[in-house]
Amino acid sequence: MTTDFQQAREALGRRLRELRGRPTQRDLAAVLGWPQAKVSKLETGRQTATPDDLKAWARATQPDTEEELLARLQGLETHVRSWRRQLRAGHRPVQDVLTIEYERSTELRAWQSSMVVGMLQTPDYARHIFTRYAELQGSPRDVEDAVRARVQRQQLLFQHGRSFHIVMWEAALHAGVCPPEVLAGQLEKLASLIGLDTVRLGIVPYGAQVGVPPANGFWLYDERLVIVEEWHAELWLNDADSVALYRRVWGTLERSAVYGTQARRVIARARAQFTDGA
């Protein structure tokens, strides 16, 4: 599947090809002291250029294009924020950046199919989530700082004038990403939030007919930004077409959700698996 990021990388590659002009890839590689394969990968969008790569390319072709090329790279990177790069200093800085976007927004919508969304997590549940991701990404262990930042952000749930419309697949209620007793406490908290005037929580039950596959999670911040969660990165998309697409996806999934008493029953059914016989 071609992503917005890949399309932007290919567009940058085409621009690099234009700047190379008549000299061959081998000729340019010799000037730059690079393998020819690197020149080929950059021009075809199979490798992401670094700022130093672009500075060297501009110096070897048209020096006055350096600023242009760096601007193109910056635009590309603002859409794709790799976890490896974001988590170099740990999870706490990532939480602080997200808090800014939450505070800027008044109407927030979320879809999550694999775990309880961060805004509704208990400290114990969040602690296990951050630990699992730190292990996966090999990032610094600042779990407790990240938990505090996430819990502090949850105060926004109780601010008048802000609304959170969150939809989750029932599978998120069963995912064993933490010990059973922690998950039971998490589900109890979810049930307690139903009826809060700033939060509308919907659950898409197992077996519900859905208009699109219940895939990766994302947040919509008003009508200006969508943040999509991937294994390798977050996609920050603010162009109107992308926001509208994810708004349609969210609306399609939301129509399959149950609310209120029905949602409590789905949550209670999941919780019973972790409390019966305990």
Rank of each mutant, 00 (worst) to 15 (best):
Leu183Val: 14
Arg132Thr: 13
Ala149Pro: 12
Ala175His: 10
Val199Gln: 06
Phe130Gln: 03
Ser139Tyr: 02
Ile166Ser: 00
Val151Thr: 14
Gln154Trp: 11
Leu156Pro: 10
Glu170Val: 06
Phe158Ile: 06
Gly185Pro: 02
Leu173Ile: 06
Ala146His: 05
Val177Ala: 10
Ile166Trp: 01
Ile129Phe: 02
Pro140Arg: 12
Ala184Tyr: 05
Ala184Arg: 12
Arg153Leu: 11
Gly185Leu: 08
Leu136Arg: 12
Arg162Cys: 06
Tyr133His: 15
Leu187Gly: 01
Arg132Trp: 10
Asp145Ile: 03
Arg148Met: 14
Val143Arg: 05
His174Ile: 06
His174Met: 11
Val147Phe: 00
Pro179Val: 08
Glu188Val: 01
Phe158Trp: 14
Lys189Glu: 10
Arg150Met: 08
Val177Glu: 02
Leu136Tyr: 14
Pro140Tyr: 01
Leu196Tyr: 11
Gln152Ala: 15
Asp142Tyr: 07
Lys189Arg: 15
Leu193His: 11
Leu196Val: 14
Gln152Cys: 08
Ile194Asn: 00
Ile194Tyr: 01
Cys178Trp: 07
Trp169Lys: 05
Val151Ala: 12
Arg132Glu: 11
Tyr133Val: 13
Val147Gly: 01
Glu170Thr: 06
Asp142Phe: 07
Ile129Arg: 02
Ala184Met: 11
Ala175Thr: 11
Asp145Trp: 03
Glu188Gly: 15
Ala171Glu: 06
Trp169Gln: 09
Gln155Pro: 07
Lys189Tyr: 06
Arg141Ile: 13
Ala149Tyr: 04
Glu181Val: 11
Gly176Val: 08
Leu156Gly: 10
Arg132Ala: 15
Asp145Ser: 09
Leu183Ile: 15
Ser139Gly: 05
Val143Leu: 03
His160Tyr: 00
Ile194Val: 08
Gln155Lys: 15
His174Asp: 04
Arg148Asn: 15
Gly185Met: 08
Leu190Glu: 04
Leu190Ile: 08
His174Phe: 08
Arg148Phe: 03
Leu193Trp: 07
Gly195Asp: 11
Arg132Gly: 13
